[in-house]
Design a protein around this nucleic acid. Structure first.
Lengths: 339, 339
DNA sequence: ATTAGCACTCGAAAAGAGTGAGTGCTAACA
DNA sequence: TGTTAGCACTCACTCTTTTCGAGTGCTAAT
């Protein structure tokens, strides 16, 4: 069990390291306002803390830096809830005072605010089309052999894909199909589209369309296949402002990771509801082992829509960032539910 | 005027520097197959070339590196047309063998191929909506107060924007307006939409719609304002593989630049037709002064659609890159015109 | 006109010296 | 018994110094 003084020492070390990115020595700790012990006393506590794995030395006679276990303890037990600064609060309320009408817009602007305020990189996932319902389906013929399928959801999200129309499908068949689909499918959650189609409509369609199967397959693949991961990054250059990324190798590895959208999407999609923090090795992705990732979900009518996340060095301003991301994701959820 | 031997020496220096990124000494040049002179002779020529500003020393007793004037001369006069390697040719024909039906797709995949083959960063602009014609216009009401405007062009490009519908506009008015617009405007170049609207339709609309001006204004701003710059980057991490960007500062400045889309769009939009090369200080953008930018345009029916570009260090594999970008932009133009 | 020879330059890498911030340990102290 | 002062020790950093070698310019010989 940690003594009160040890808790204090650990707190000071981490706070200080988060600010300066430099190892902290016993003398520096002893000089802090909140600490009234001599360096020698502090050194004893530091030795204990190191033995327990909360802090580390960079070399045998250096000051201490937090270990990942230290950060985890800090996040779990030492984090004092902070009130946001005036500037932070103003920036956020400015954002939500504009009347934004598109989901994507809200989410993207939130991400930008988040990365601007923190100097870390924001990542957002969603809003997931899967969670929304069909508003309208449309086919537009661009030429004899190509057509454009447009799908609009109730959240104002637009998906479109163009495809080659094979010769055996008549243009009129496609149109009929779309009309019928629109009659029957508006309001159906996108995620159920496929099942719904198969179950209820095949027989009905037979009457109207000559070549149901093929037309249907084409439409399906045009609309539902290769669903793009709805991933968006904000403030990607911020990473380079952090001293731990003063090495092109590291930046390169992280940026390459950001090109693998499906990997990141997977991680963000599988975080539970609310705020989650993973520190260093806790991250499943190799390239993130030197980073911390803070995620928060936003939702509509209790239904989880997507995730907003912040990627930075392990030496993150946890307390401030958590407050920010908390306020933002709540505001997002509120805004969506107001519509 | 440069002697033949001086031309040879300059060529060897630049070729070698492009490959190794190291200063080249007289001994190294003399050892080349194509050179049959002693180091001392080479040194005399090098001194001359330096006096004329084609090459530089990094310090008083170092080998030589090309100056920007040197690169310019190389590009203008020493570039031997290269035949593409098998691999390059195969990659490109693979790309165009797939049946791609969307403009964006072709352009983006081309950019990716370009950056993958060269290890530089590709930038593409367009296809410009301005150059295309209206295929269909549509308004979808999402709720009482919000609506989504979707604009489809003949090239399969989809633009959409959602907006707040003010109370004084009736939903039916908007629909009427859209119907009329569709009747009259399909086939009109997007760039003329505005003029066309004002000139021909105001009187007609008066008959049908109660509140033309307001409805029209809203629609216009939803569709035509804040036209996003259609900029796309490929292989952005490649830059970090180049030794001249082994410094986070430089990478940061270049990446920050890439977030300023309008600046880049402007540069790409104002390059003339065909292939253009700007080297170092020839670039108008400050952050690019250490880079070379190679641009090529692609077009449809003689109408310039957009630009495809490659950004890399001044020490670029000019001959290969130019061949590649040439073949690619021609293939793109051909593909578009085939549709 | 070309080349060999030679003294010279200068960056890069290696080796050494000094500095200081930090430690652990021991003994003294309240 | 918990805290502190004192002290020897460690080790990264910085600053010089040295060495090394690739490269140069110049001059004289071919």
């Amino acid at each position: 069990m940690l003594s009160n003084r040890q808790l204090l020492v650990l707190q000071v070390i981490i706070d200080e390291f988060i600010e300066t990115a430099q190892p902290i020595g016993s003398r520096a700790i002893s000089k802090k306002q909140s600490v009234s012990f001599s360096p020698a006393t502090i050194r004893n506590d530091m030795a204990d803390l190191e033995e327990m794995g909360f802090i580390e030395k960079t070399h045998s006679s250096s000051g201490r830096v937090p270990s990942e276990k230290g950060y985890r303890f800090y996040v779990d037990h030492l984090l004092l809830p902070v009130h946001l600064s005036d500037r932070d609060q103003r920036t956020i309320s400015n954002l939500f005072d504009q009347d934004l009408v598109e989901f994507e817009q809200v989410v993207q602007k939130s991400a930008h605010v988040l990365s601007d305020l923190t100097n870390y990189t924001s990542i957002i996932l969603g809003p997931e089309v899967y969670e929304t319902t069909l508003k309208q389906l449309q086919i537009i013929h661009l030429s004899e052999t190509t057509a454009l399928a447009i799908l609009v959801t109730n959240t104002g999200h637009v998906e479109h894909r163009s495809f080659t129309v094979p010769e055996k499908i008549k243009a009129t068949d496609l149109e009929k199909l779309v009309n019928i689909l629109n009659e029957r499918l508006i309001g159906v959650p996108i995620v159920h589209l496929h099942k719904q189609l198969q179950k209820e409509l095949t027989s009905v369609l037979d009457r109207y369309v000559d070549n149901v199967e093929t037309a249907f397959d084409y439409l399906k693949s045009a609309l539902l296949d290769q669903h793009p991961n709805n991933i968006y990054y904000g403030g990607v250059t911020n990473i380079m402002l952090q001293p731990e990324f003063n090495d092109v190798e590291k930046v390169h590895s992280l940026y390459s990771l950001m090109e693998k959208n499906d990997l990141i999407a997977n991680v963000l999609r599988t975080t539970g509801e609310g705020i989650h923090i993973s520190i260093g090795q806790e991250n499943k992705i190799d390239e993130m082992q030197d980073c911390s990732l803070i995620t928060a979900t936003y939702s509509l009518a209790g239904q989880q829509l997507g995730t907003i996340a912040l990627l930075g060095p392990k030496r993150m301003e946890y307390s401030r960032v958590i407050s920010l991301i908390n306020v933002l994701s709540n505001q997002m959820t509120r805004t969506f539910n107001d519509w």
